[in-house]
């Protein structure tokens, strides 16, 4: 673990989480949530949890973003807040 690396990724994570929750377009929100998943994956690889990072790269950044997008296309794309 390197503190500066940690610091940068954690700040980016908070920014990505806030943007994902504040974007009005739900498709963009899903994509930014995918970015959030990749950042978490980086953080775990850096912490030494390689198995968890691998799972997160496949699940959090791949499958769950696709599931969100599938639901957004089957419902409404615009969000009120």
């Amino acid at each position: 673990m390197i503190f500066t690396f940690d610091f940068v990724i954690l700040i980016f994570m908070v920014v990505a989480a806030i943007i994902a929750l504040n974007v009005k377009d739900l498709l963009s929100a899903s994509m930014i949530f995918g970015i959030y998943g990749f950042l978490i994956c980086l953080l775990w690889a850096e912490m030494g949890a390689v198995d968890v990072a691998f799972t997160e790269a496949a699940v959090g950044a791949g499958v769950s973003a696709v599931l969100f997008i599938a639901t957004v296309f089957n419902t409404k794309r615009k969000s009120s807040d």
Binding site: V50, D51, F54, T55, A58, G62
Partner: peptide, 25 residues
């Protein structure tokens, strides 16, 4: 490879299963 080599490198059933599912997706 991830499933079969999970004893020696990062990987295993969950990761390999998700990757297989993702290939079909």
């Amino acid at each position: 490879y991830v499933i079969a080599h999970g004893h020696y490198s990062p990987g295993g059933g969950f990761q390999g299963g998700v990757l297989l599912g993702a290939s079909f997706i």
